[in-house]
């Protein structure tokens, strides 16, 4: 299953890159993540536990998240292998960043391939694309929120600017 999407951040590419490489920020932003612990002996790999509900299948999944093919500050590949609920989830996404036409903004594009096996496939497959879209929006939206919060902490920001800092997915 192919899933594509993009998200526009109201921050420059370096800021977006930094947060997309920050495991703590990612752990906070991934919907339902309960735990994300670095894997010993690997720099960009974590063991994660997440609670996710898709259609009528809701429950806890555990797995490994890895970043590879890192080319700062433009792209990396995010892969996830998880299992739980009598199901196996495998996903890999190439995440690419580039400046938006509008100055100071950054477009993040992802091109993902996911496969489901087991119960999730048999019950939730037809809903997984829309669920993936929703989860992606939640993920990047969550990162944007964190950027905004960090910005607030760093300096005083006029309220008007922050009100539209969360751009939508295109």
């Amino acid at each position: 299953m192919q899933i594509q999407g993009s998200y526009t951040f109201e921050y420059d590419q370096q800021a977006v890159w930094n947060i997309l490489m920050n495991p703590d920020a990612i752990a906070k932003a991934i919907p339902g993540v309960k735990e994300m612990v670095p894997l010993e002996g690997e720099t960009y790999a974590w063991r994660a536990i997440a609670k996710i509900g898709v259609a009528s299948v809701s429950g806890t999944y555990s797995g490994i998240i890895r970043m590879t093919e890192i080319e700062a500050p433009d792209r990396y590949r995010l892969t996830a292998e998880g299992e739980g609920q009598q199901s196996v989830i495998n996903g890999t996404a190439l995440i690419t960043m580039q400046p938006a036409q509008e100055a100071g903004k950054t477009v993040v594009v992802w091109d993902a391939e996911a496969s489901l096996a087991g119960k999730l496939a048999s019950i939730a497959q037809r809903l997984i694309k829309s669920a993936a879209g929703l989860l992606s929006r939640q993920f990047f939206g969550g990162l944007a929120k964190q950027l905004k919060a960090a910005e607030k902490e760093a300096k005083t920001v006029p309220a008007a600017t922050s009100s539209h800092s969360m751009a939508g997915e295109s």
Partner: peptide, 14 residues
């Protein structure tokens, strides 16, 4: 079934 042999009609919703 999909091409991987996953049953896609696994519930009365499907």
């Amino acid at each position: 079934y999909d091409e991987h042999g996953q049953l896609l009609t696994g519930s009365m919703m499907d």
